[in-house]
Design a protein around this nucleic acid. Structure first.
Length: 799
RNA sequence: GCGGAUGUGAUGGAAUUGGCAGACAUGCUGGUCUUAGAAACCAGUGCUUCGGCUUGCAGGUUCAAGUCCUGUCAUCCGCACCA
């Protein structure tokens, strides 16, 4: 059989489409399997060779599941709201909807060319009104549940995009999208209370099968830490509250620090003799971006509050209070007790300001550096805690503080609430109106979707309002509660909104009454296997788990976790080993590869390139190797013999075993290597029988489906290979009858002997002692021990 | 600084529980075919002074270490004053 990838691919893609071979049926008699890949943002650049890697991997899993008899849901859609489209639209004066349409068309064509077995009948698009109706609806449920609130806050502001960015969108102090340095700006924003779910987002990780690094990334991002809140009396007669994870070191607190934005600065104004100096420091801190602020981390700065001091509750000593930007207003209480002997930052600060460093945990040398070890030290200079270990001291002091009413146990998180407002056009309108009398009111759910009006210009206004703010017709409305005049919210939702629940919509994509029917959700959810980028572990993954939990709490979902299993793929790098980028000029275009070598080769190579979880550089030469394999496979149809040799039969069963288990373990590269070995074996044997080749075609089908179908058909296979039964192996046929056993003398390898499988030590030894090298090594020596691992090795010890 | 990962031939990478390091592929060398090239096919391919030596480096545990332990170096990624 001559292999022409263009013909073969066109033929089978058409056939799959016609027969709707991969449509997920609502057939509840079969066990379901929901495989999910992250839906792409349809950018103008088209598909990138990085995209097909995760898609092909889960396509392989999905195809195998279908062949194993599962009812498989493997859907695809478009996460199409977002900044690049809007920026492109502004620049080229095209409506973002049109830009999106074109990009989707391009992406879809490219994905189809890869022969991915998506159920295109369930395609969704986050910018579709019928879709974002439900994004808005879910937002309203969150609002009604008290999970959305408006807050005046300093936000990350990108002066170029003129948009507020979430912390997660700020990379190295710069806008994730345009790389402009981000500044801080006060703005009233809609926030979602993801922090209310912090504990559950951590604790429920125990119930799911995520790869460890994803769990760790989420845990670190949420950053839960246990400690205590302690109230310090001040000379003003009020109390200054701090959070600390080291209450055990309380005796060593020799000063306190508050954040520049701390409200007590105003409160204490009349007592502060250097108020102007403090205000000047605050202003200087506010001008710095977060990035500059951390850049300055090496040098500690600050100003002492003259006129107010605090009392260490354990020592009774008066201690000074400082304002310094190394304390953040957004974490804990915005104030700390400083223990320079046992905290690096406090130590640095104390050195700059000549503050006392009092050791309270023995074990280090606090004149040299802070001693922060919590495992080995013993408490000293600590009154009631003396002699205790750190852990014991922590418990005892918290008990004491609680009893005296000075403090209490407290848990804190690094996770912040989610800034949910964007001053942009191309996003879901937030379905709320503001009434002078009634405050913020949700619009009537019957009015959903609240659609994006057409505007003349998509550019944000200079004062940072969304372009929608200029649409007075749209903005002015009536209050759903009192009927009086009211104004719509003109901010839109962030790109993360649509992707926070899309996996639910796939279950029932055309439902106009609900975001998905309970029935569909209960059949398909949760997602059985979700693969996606590592970069989403702390963003999309966390957000969508949060929404799923909120919907669960509201009774819309049966399970509190949306994904049973989460895996992550490595990046595909350029041939030079660097990240692919236009500026480096090392981008490989998938269209070219498909055109020259075919989709099957592309798929195979993407999987053969290396360990799925690790990044790997592209190599055009290696692509050829995959094509060569397919050519040689196709040529097998000319090498049909009546009966396969025993060697081929054994190789076949070994390969079925290997491919079957490797797919489950995401070891696609070794699965392919196993099939290459089978091909070599058949080749060496001069061919194989029809049934062996048919089985081979089925094994290859998830990886290179077009050629596999062609082969299957030419060998007389019935129906589609893609829907045939997954091959079974016979373990007894995969077993070897004889095995080579390695022989060592004193741990050094000397040679091998071939013995029947399961041979005992005496048999192996009898053969081994005939080896020349073994004779030379053991001659005239006393053999005092033999170590034999059945079927593997024999080690002879002599002296 | 903290957290995570990775170091194996010329290259991408294989190698359950410690048990023949280098599967599979690329590249390279030689050959067959061809006027020639490409393709295809066949043979070879870690290094070696032929004793041996080899999984970043240095130790250790073990009959046996790429794999376990200690230390160290390098690279990549993420977070970044989170008290």
């Amino acid at each position: 059989m001559k292999y022409s990838h263009k013909e073969t691919e066109a033929k089978w893609q058409a056939k799959w489409d016609e027969t709707k071979a991969f449509a997920a049926k609502n057939d509840k008699s079969k066990p379901k399997y929901y495989a999910l890949v992250e839906f792409p943002y349809p950018s103008g650049a088209g598909l990138h060779v990085g995209h097909p890697r995760p898609y092909t991997a889960l396509d392989i899993v999905s195809r195998k599941r279908r062949m194993e008899g599962y009812n498989v849901l493997f859907p695809m859609g478009w996460d199409a709201f977002g900044l690049p489209t809007e920026n492109y639209a502004i620049k080229n004066k095209i409506h973002p909807r049109l830009v999106t349409e074109n990009n989707v068309k391009r992406f879809k064509g490219q994905l189809k060319a890869l022969g991915l077995s998506f159920d295109w009948d369930r395609e969704i698009n986050t910018t579709d009104e019928k879709y974002y109706k439900w994004t808005q609806w879910i937002f309203l449920q969150l609002f009604k549940k008290g999970l959305a609130y408006k807050k005046e806050m300093t936000v990350n502001w990108c002066p170029s995009c003129k948009v507020v960015l979430a912390n997660e969108e700020v990379v190295g102090g710069c806008c994730e999208r345009c790389n402009t340095t981000v500044v801080r700006k006060a703005k009233s924003q809609w926030m979602l209370k993801i922090t209310e779910y912090a504990d559950r987002l951590i604790d429920d990780l125990e119930t799911v099968d995520y790869i460890e690094r994803v769990k760790l990334a989420e845990k670190n991002w949420i950053g839960r830490s246990y400690g205590a809140e302690v109230n310090f009396d001040t000379s003003r007669g009020d109390k200054l509250k701090v959070f600390t994870t080291r209450p055990d070191t309380l005796y060593g607190a020799t000063y306190m620090v508050i954040a520049p934005e701390h409200p007590y600065i105003e409160k204490w104004q009349d007592s502060l003799t250097n108020y102007d100096e403090i205000l000047a420091y605050r202003e200087a801190a506010a001008k710095k971006s977060d990035f500059e602020r951390t850049e300055m981390a090496k040098e500690k700065t600050g100003v002492r509050l003259e006129g107010v001091s605090a009392i260490n509750p354990m020592t009774g000593k008066e201690i000074p209070i400082f304002v310094s930007d190394y304390v953040l207003i957004t974490y804990g209480t915005g104030a700390i007790m400083a223990v320079p002997a046992h905290d690096d930052r406090d130590w640095d600060f104390a050195k700059v300001f000549g503050l006392p460093i009092i050791e309270v945990v023995a074990g280090g040398n606090v004149t040299e550096a802070a001693f922060t070890d919590v495992e080995t030290g013993k408490m000293v200079n600590s009154g009631i805690l003396d002699g205790l270990e750190v852990k014991e001291a922590k418990e005892k002091i918290i008990e004491y503080l609680t009893e005296k009413g000075i403090g209490e146990k407290k848990v804190n998180y690094k996770l912040r609430d989610w800034v949910f407002s964007r001053q942009r056009y191309w996003g879901e309108p937030i379905p709320l109106v503001y009434c002078e009398k009634c405050g913020w009111q949700p619009i009537d759910e019957k009015e959903l979707p609240l659609t994006l009006p057409n505007v003349d210009s998509y550019e944000p206004t200079d004062n940072g309002e969304s372009p929608l703010a200029n649409m007075t017709d749209w903005v002015n409305t009536t209050c759903p509660k009192c009927g009086g005049s009211a104004k719509r919210e003109t901010d839109t939702m962030p790109q993360w909104a649509g992707s926070s629940w899309y996996f639910l919509r796939y279950c029932d994509p055309y439902n106009e009454e609900e975001f998905a029917s309970k029935e569909a959700l209960e059949y398909w959810m949760p997602v059985d296997w979700y693969n996606g980028g590592m970069e989403h572990a702390t963003l999309h993954l966390l957000y969508s788990r949060f929404w799923a939990k909120a919907l669960y709490d509201l009774g819309y979902l049966r399970d509190p976790e949306p994904y049973l299993k989460r895996t992550s793929h490595g990046m595909i790098l350029g041939e030079d080993g660097e990240k692919m980028s236009k500026s480096r000029g090392n981008v490989v275009n998938p269209d070219d590869v498909i055109n020259e070598f075919g989709a099957d080769t592309m798929r195979l190579y993407e999987m053969f390139i290396g360990d799925f979880e690790k990044s790997a550089p592209w190599s055009t030469n290696s692509v050829k190797g995959c094509r060569r394999f397919l050519d040689r496979f196709a040529a097998l149809s000319d090498k049909i013999v009546d009966k396969a040799s025993p060697a081929v039969e054994k190789s076949l069963h070994k390969t079925i075993m290997k491919v079957t288990s490797d797919i489950e373990a995401m070891k696609f590269n070794t699965a392919i290597a196993a099939m290459m070995t089978l091909l070599n074996d058949i080749h060496d044997a001069g061919g194989a029988d029809r049934e062996t080749l048919k089985t081979f075609a089925l094994l290859l089908c998830p990886f290179a489906p077009h050629l596999a179908e062609e082969m299957w058909e030419s060998l007389g296979g019935k129906g589609l290979a893609s829907l045939a039964e997954w091959p079974k192996f016979d373990e007894s046929k995969a077993k070897d009858d004889s095995v080579t056993v390695a022989v060592s003398v004193l741990g050094k390898f000397q040679g091998t002997v071939t013995v029947p499988v399961g041979a005992d030590e005496a048999t192996v030894f009898a053969e081994a002692i005939k080896l020349e090298k073994v004779i030379a090594r053991t001659e005239g020596k006393e053999i005092f021990k033999k170590i034999y691992i059945q079927d593997k090795m024999l080690n002879i010890l002599c002296k």
